[in-house]
Design a protein around this nucleic acid. Structure first.
Length: 334
DNA sequence: GCTATTTGACCCTT
DNA sequence: AAGGGTCAAATAGC
């Protein structure tokens, strides 16, 4: 298994149940492999859907355009000949497997791809809303990749800890690498201890961040917990320093980030780079992640192109980050 | 004016 | 019927 496969949407292999570890790839989110019934209605359903669409188009009340569009899509889909020829009982068939995988991270935004948010919803029983993203290349290249990001409930957690987010990736990127992967900043994540802040962000704060030179200073959406946390994380010095440091060193070619390297890394290298070479690992999440990766990446070969998420237990200064990057024997070889 | 995000309604799946 | 996923108008920022 490659690190790329581990970190990016592709056929997902759940952790072995006998392992008894709490993996970074949480299995508590259900894999999207639900069965779908192939209705035998066919054209009549299509006609109904279409007429609904027409009805909506003429309706006096304000209806969302998406309804019509979706109804038409459904109609077109239903016009296709039924895939199942078995007349007996209602046949079922696995829906084209929507690949999904789950990642728990404290920095959900830095995953090497560019995403556009298209929705947010409060989920039943969840403390924080779930955000829905699709690949920014979805329109121009038809890339089907999507992801949802939801902040984990921090019940009982130390408020000084960076919040964790559950990121569920669905479908695989089909957009070409040079369009997204190479442009995207390669971030080796650390987790900073973020001072608790009670200040509620206002829309203008993002602009303030830009003016003040806060790293990652794109236009952050205001008000949501997710993005507020991201703001807070960006404001924490160590996070900012690490992100910019990693990117700068990578771009100068002085060292080669594992995330952009074409070098074939052994699992040993990967572990060195991910955990020992860069960051102290002293929280439980990181350690279970380590063991999981060590086991799963025994047969790891091939280039690492994806960013790496690592939780570190402390707050690192820029100097510390630089020192570790420069002194790392693997990273600093040129 | 363009682009990205927010938000509430709508639709689909279970 | 409930809950989750998606749409697109409205809005904000540049």
């Amino acid at each position: 298994m490659t690190l790329h496969e581990l970190l990016l949407p592709s056929p997902w292999t759940p952790p072995h149940p006998s392992d008894g570890v709490a993996p970074a790839w949480s299995s508590r989110m259900q894999l999207d492999e639900c069965l779908v019934k192939v209705e035998l209605g066919g054209p009549s359903d299509a006609a109904r859907a279409l007429s609904m669409a027409e009805e909506e188009a003429c309706g006096g009340t304000r209806r969302r355009g998406g309804s019509k569009k979706r109804a038409r899509a459904k109609a077109e889909q239903d016009e296709q000949p039924a895939a199942c020829s078995n007349p007996q009982a209602r046949c079922t068939k696995r829906r084209k497997k929507q690949q999904s995988r789950c990642l728990v991270t404290s920095v959900p935004d830095f995953d090497g791809y560019q995403w556009r948010k298209y929705g947010q919803k409060q989920i039943e029983g969840a403390m924080y809303p779930r955000s829905y993203y699709r690949c920014t290349r979805s329109e121009e290249q038809g890339c089907p990749a999507k992801r949802t990001v939801q902040r984990n409930d921090d019940c009982g957690n130390n408020t000084m800890e960076a919040p964790k987010y559950t990121v569920v990736y669905r479908a695989e990127h089909t957009c070409t690498a040079n369009d997204s992967m190479e442009e995207a900043p390669v971030i080796l994540e650390t987790t900073a201890i973020i001072p608790a802040t009670t200040k509620k962000r206002r829309p203008c704060d993002a602009a303030d961040d830009n003016r003040n030179g806060v790293a990652g200073g794109g236009p952050f959406p205001p008000e949501t917990d997710h993005h507020q946390a991201r703001h807070e994380a960006a404001a924490a010095d160590s996070c900012t320093s690490l992100a910019t440091t990693t990117r700068r060193i990578s771009s100068t070619g002085r060292t080669q980030s594992p995330a952009t390297s074409d070098v074939t890394w052994s699992s040993e290298h990967v572990i060195d780079v991910l955990y020992d070479g860069l960051f102290p690992v002293d929280d439980s999440w990181a350690q279970t992640t380590t063991s999981l990766l060590v086991r799963d990446m025994d047969d790891f070969t091939g280039p690492i192109r994806s960013p790496v998420h690592v939780a570190a237990g402390g707050c690192w200064s820029m100097d510390q980050c630089l020192l570790h990057l420069v002194n790392d024997p693997i990273l600093s070889h040129s």
